[in-house]
Design a protein around this nucleic acid. Structure first.
Lengths: 335, 335
DNA sequence: GTGAAAGCGCTAACAG
DNA sequence: CTGTTAGCGCTTTCAC
């Protein structure tokens, strides 16, 4: 039973092994230029003393925390949590840990978190917050290494990864049109999000291209992605004299709320009202009826974001890039 | 427009203000014993230079990272993400940030994460992993500050917060019995979790107390909390010659999968088969039929865990405590 | 009330 | 191949 002393310092190990601290450091960092025999001696002392390196000290010296900040508007949303897993997996692969921060999409909290970069508590950040709040951070982007994920403004010189929201929304609407629906409603989220604005544009253009009406009453804006928000929006929309016979929701959670509302209204889905969502979160396949939706490669979105950030950290002056990942329509029962 | 230089050191500020680094440090830490005039001078220089303290250095000096590790089996599960929010909110209130780690309930990964404590990269940890994997860490619990949340073994000398799983499961079963069901199935999760074992015990005892049969075929064990796992378990259970007319699932996700299976089987819920879940995640109110479930105070669970940990950090030798929070039956349409 | 100076534990030149 | 040494930027006695 070796005496466990996690607080033993590198000096203690050096003493025990009869070598210098520099040598211990070399061994601990797997650097070459150490005689195997010496290395073994050091390792023996390390286990004998139960030594663990103090990362605080190393961090100060190397000026790196090996922590990646991830700022999400809402960790509770299944869409975001899947992305976080993607980020986490590649971060860990590269020896980084992730610090998860729930910003509630508030600019204030976001910029407070950004201080973590300025104070060297994190090496880089991935931001999923509204592009409107990203703008505030754009000026410092050259100094502070961060990338945008899902939400991004191509005009900002910040690496990003996302999907083509305009085209994706168009695909959803065109699908609905192809299924014979003509009065198509939109449940949209917070317009501070560029994705919300882009999807609305896609919706509108697709409608127009098909020569269909795009009545303003058929568009509802909600300020959260809760199930209830989608439900209420749908309930309201359906009281309209000439209510939509199909609805496109910009998020699965909203769409699921819509399903719930339609059930309450005794509307048959998709016969009386069709529903299409966005994201393809796990639950989308389990609803009744199962949700037709635009799938986003959530995992890959997170992984790519982490890769971009890691790239940027490795080479700060590398050219800024933007990546668009493919989406696809997953047709189930609700349309 | 002040020259922003986040990498300015305390020495630069001292020079600029014409004071010593000690004084700057005092000002930065809001310590008293500094003349207001001096304080103002320093603050002026701080803003002039755009100084932000380097936390790496401070951390080394104070031997604290002000980071809390949170280890969850699966960040994607809505149950856990709500708890994480609770943790995050009180952590931030106290000047801590949280580092979220998805362990996949693997003992290996868990102990790797624990190294973050040993290497001073985190000050404390909150563990939501199976009590079976917690046992491995119990020995070091006196040295390494951590607390258990949701999953815990009262026998381990580690502070914990959770619910009375035994009683909660009994409540669910008694509710089903009261509604006239006699053949009650159980969809249980991974037995490495103490909560799974406790809930099973509660289920069994409640059945016995009512003089009802507890056939082994009516119990299904799944190895994940995915919707699909619940669905498949239910599908299998329902092929039984004398299938249950009610099922208690130890997690809402499992119960939702069950709902999906029953729909596929054309069984009316709750008339032909009633379903009760556990947790009361947000989606539970939106399913069809809306899910009856045992609600856990997820937010409070997370908040309490963080408080316990913070307490432990403030006073390492304080007595170990265990907290049980109340659960409650939320009756909706599925039973 | 303020300053000088000694480290925290590690890494990285630079010598040997 | 290994050792010596000078810091990283901050906090914290201990003087003044």
């Amino acid at each position: 039973m070796p005496p466990k002393n996690p607080s033993a310092s590198i000096a203690a190990v050096a003493l025990h092994a009869g070598v210098s601290v520099a040598t211990v450091s070399r061994v601990m960092n797997d650097m070459d230029g150490v005689r195997p025999l010496t290395r073994d001696k050091v390792m023996a002392s390390v286990t004998a003393l139960g030594y663990r390196m103090n990362h605080l000290a190393r961090n100060l010296r190397t000026a790196a925390s090996r922590l990646l900040l991830t700022m999400v508007p809402d960790v509770g949303n299944p869409f975001y949590s899947e992305i976080v897993r993607g980020i986490d997996s590649v971060a860990r692969e590269h020896g980084y840990f992730v610090m998860l921060c729930d910003t509630g999409a508030e600019a204030g909290r976001e910029s407070a978190y950004f201080d973590l970069l300025r104070t060297h508590r994190a090496d880089g950040a991935i931001c999923l917050d509204p592009d409107t709040v990203q703008h505030a951070l754009a000026n410092e982007s050259n100094i502070l290494p961060w990338v945008a994920c899902c939400e991004f403004d191509p005009a900002i010189a910040v690496p990003y990864v996302g999907v083509d929201n305009y085209r994706a929304a168009g695909d959803a609407v065109r699908h609905l049109i192809a299924r014979g629906h003509s009065r198509i409603g939109l449940i949209n989220s917070d317009q501070r999000y560029r994705y919300a604005r882009e999807r609305q544009r896609g919706y509108l253009d697709a409608l127009q291209a098909a020569g269909l009406q795009a009545r303003p009453e058929w568009r509802r804006q909600v300020d959260s992605l809760d199930y209830d928000a989608g439900k209420h929006a749908t309930l309201q929309m359906m009281t309209l004299p000439d209510a939509p016979n199909a609805v496109f929701a910009v998020s699965d959670t909203l769409a699921i709320g819509a399903l719930s509302a339609l059930r309450q209204l005794n509307k048959r889905v998709p016969e009386e009202v069709a529903v299409v969502g966005f994201d393809d979160i796990a639950i989308a396949a389990q609803t009744w009826p199962a949700l037709t939706t635009i799938a986003q490669p959530m995992r890959a979105l997170g992984e790519t974001a982490a890769q971009l950030l890691l790239q940027r950290l490795a080479d700060p002056q590398a050219t800024v890039q933007g990546v668009l990942l493919p989406h696809r329509l997953v047709q189930r029962e609700s349309s």
